[in-house]
Simulated scan of single mutants.
Amino acid sequence: MRTIKLLRIIYLITLMLFLISCRKDKTGEIKDRALDQPDQKANAAPVDSNGDSIYIKKFDFLSLQTILTTIPDTDVDKYYGKYSTTYKPHLGLGKKYPYSFDIAPSVGEEMKKMVKNNDSIRLILTTRENHLEILFADSNNNKYIITENAIKQVDEKVFKEMDNVFKTGIYDEMTKAKIGLVDSEQSGDKTYGNTTEILIPYADFSQYEPTKHTLSFLPGVLTNNNVNSNKKSKMHHLTLIMCLMELSPNKALKNPPIVFSDDFCLKPPGC
Rank of each mutant, 00 (worst) to 15 (best):
D39K: 13
R122M: 15
P256H: 03
V158K: 07
E110D: 06
L68K: 03
D52H: 00
Y192A: 10
F61C: 15
F61A: 10
Q153H: 03
T74A: 15
P89K: 08
R128D: 04
E110R: 14
D77V: 05
Y80W: 09
E173A: 13
A203Y: 01
D204F: 10
E209V: 12
P105K: 07
I20G: 09
N117M: 06
T69F: 08
I241W: 03
N43I: 14
L12D: 04
P249S: 10
K167C: 14
K234W: 00
K88A: 07
A34V: 09
K167V: 14
L181K: 04
E133W: 00
K267H: 07
N149E: 09
M245E: 05
V227H: 04
N118H: 10
Y97W: 06
M174R: 05
N117Q: 03
Y79D: 12
K26Q: 00
I121T: 11
M114E: 10
D204R: 11
L15Q: 12
Q65H: 11
L244P: 06
K160A: 06
R2K: 10
S49E: 04
G108M: 03
Y202M: 14
A137K: 05
I200Y: 00
C22K: 06
R2W: 04
L19H: 01
E246N: 14
K190P: 01
A203L: 13
A45C: 11
D163I: 05
L238K: 00
Y144N: 00
P219H: 08
K26I: 06
K57Y: 08
D52L: 12
K160S: 07
F59S: 11
G188C: 08
C243G: 08
Y11A: 08
V158Q: 14
D119Y: 08
T214K: 03
Y99T: 01
T191Q: 03
G169W: 00
S106D: 02
K112D: 03
D172P: 08
I13F: 08
I103M: 15
I67C: 09
R2P: 15
L12S: 10
P72A: 15
F264K: 06
K26P: 02
I10P: 05
G108Q: 01
V107S: 01
D262Q: 06
G180C: 15
P46S: 11
V227G: 03
K31R: 04
D189V: 04
Y99Q: 10
S184K: 05
D77R: 06
V115N: 10
M235I: 07
P105W: 00
L266R: 02
V259C: 08
D262L: 13
K82D: 01
K167A: 12
K231T: 08
T69N: 06
M16I: 13
E246R: 07
H236Q: 04
E148G: 14
T239Y: 01
L64D: 00
S233I: 05
Q37H: 07
L7I: 13
L240R: 02
L35S: 13
I20W: 00
T66C: 10
Y99S: 05
L91A: 05
S21I: 15
N130K: 12
H237L: 14
K88T: 11
K254S: 14
K160E: 15
L68P: 02
K160G: 07
I124C: 12
F59K: 15
D183L: 13
C265T: 02
S184C: 06
E161C: 06
K78I: 07
A44L: 10
L247R: 14
G180M: 04
T191A: 11
V221C: 07
